[in-house]
Structure formats: structure tokens, C-alpha cells
């Protein structure tokens, strides 16, 4: 059980049988008055959000979320298929549920799947992934007049800005949280 004083951004709680995540949080306490916890909560399944003010004695159940390690197998149309590495059970998650994650997923990658009452509701990737550059304009050596980055496309179809020395066929490390280039990966 959580009490209102445990509320903070990112906390996941169960309200009316649904999992919610706190997306905004503000503590306020008028002089001589009681502590008030003003929150904005987002339903982790439907994405619907609402605002509510709680008092210190309000209690919450921890959202019964389970994180399972799964291997990404393949995509078929709009569906992405994963296999539980323990039970070998296979599940499908839609592109919409995966959001930006699809830019960084390659076959056989291990991901953490968030499960609520046997329903997959989200996927957390490793903080960084290594992907191969499939298209890059050649770097005009000696050209110091232009910008210091250029766009390249990686194997998932995702396009990002990288330093000019990155070439087609290179493997680069990308931060999955920001989608930005980190470094060129050594083979």
C-alpha cells in the first residue's frame, strides 16, 4: 500500500482496478492547513488522463504490474511478436502500443515487457542499442563549411543525425530514450 505522501512522478498505482502512472505531481500545504497532493494520472492501458487532489491519509494499492523478459522475434504487419524467455509463451503487441520503441528493435533482442493482468501494456528497451547504418551520404573530406552532423538511416528505417565520419555499413550506438546518436560501435 502507498499513502499520498509516497506519490511522486512515475509512481504506478491501481485505481478502480486499472493501472495508473503519476505524470505530474505537486505538493501543496496552505498555512496551518493540511498537506494536499495534486496529481495528474494517466491510465497505462487506455492513455486517458485525469487530475485529482489527494490528502495524506488517502491510500493506494500498488499497480499489479509484472515485468517479463521477452525476446523480440519478428513483425507481421502491425503486430510485433515476442517470446517469454522463461515460459516460451508467445505474444503479440501492436505498433501503437510500442510507440517509438519500434525504431530500435531488432530480431532476437531481449526487452522487458510490462504485463498487467496477463495483458502486455508496454515495452522497455535497453537504454542503448547498436544498429547498422543502411544509408548515409558520403562525407566530403575537408568540407569544414557545413554543419557538423548529417542524417543517416539505420536498419530499422529510423533516421537520425550523426557526425559526418559515420559511413554506410558502420554500427552505431543509439540512446533509446532520446533517440540520439551516442558513438560508433567497435566491431
Amino acid at each position: 500500500m502507498y499513502t499520498a505522501s509516497d506519490l511522486r512522478k512515475g509512481l504506478k498505482v491501481e485505481i478502480d482496478g486499472e493501472p495508473f502512472i503519476v505524470t505530474d505531481f505537486e505538493f501543496s500545504k496552505p498555512g496551518k492547513g493540511q498537506s494536499l497532493y495534486r496529481t495528474r494520472l494517466k491510465n497505462m492501458v487506455t492513455g486517458n488522463a485525469f487530475e485529482k487532489t489527494y490528502r495524506s491519509n488517502d491510500k493506494f494499492r500498488k499497480a499489479p504490474l509484472e515485468e517479463r523478459t521477452m525476446q523480440y522475434l519478428y513483425s507481421q504487419g502491425d503486430e510485433y511478436h515476442f517470446m517469454d524467455t522463461k515460459s516460451y509463451e508467445q505474444i503479440a503487441i501492436t505498433a501503437e502500443q510500442l510507440g517509438d520503441n519500434i525504431n530500435f528493435m531488432v530480431d532476437n533482442m531481449d526487452v522487458a515487457v510490462l504485463v498487467f493482468k496477463e495483458r502486455p501494456i508496454g515495452v522497455t528497451l535497453p537504454n542503448s542499442v547498436v544498429l547498422e547504418v543502411t544509408r548515409a551520404d558520403p562525407w566530403a573530406k575537408g568540407d569544414t563549411s557545413g554543419t557538423d552532423t548529417k542524417p543517416v538511416t539505420v536498419e530499422t528505417g529510423y533516421t537520425l543525425q550523426v557526425p559526418p565520419f559515420v559511413e554506410e555499413g558502420d554500427k552505431i550506438q543509439i540512446d533509446t530514450r532520446t533517440g540520439q546518436y551516442i558513438t560508433r560501435a567497435k566491431e
Binding site: 505522501s5 505537486e26 505538493f27 501543496s28 500545504k29 498537506s35
Partner: peptide, 8 residues
Amino acid sequence: KDERGTLH
């Protein structure tokens, strides 16, 4: 105790 926020 327990007073923590942008103003606390």
C-alpha cells in the same frame, strides 16, 4: 516532517 515540494 514530510513537507517537500517546489515550495517546501
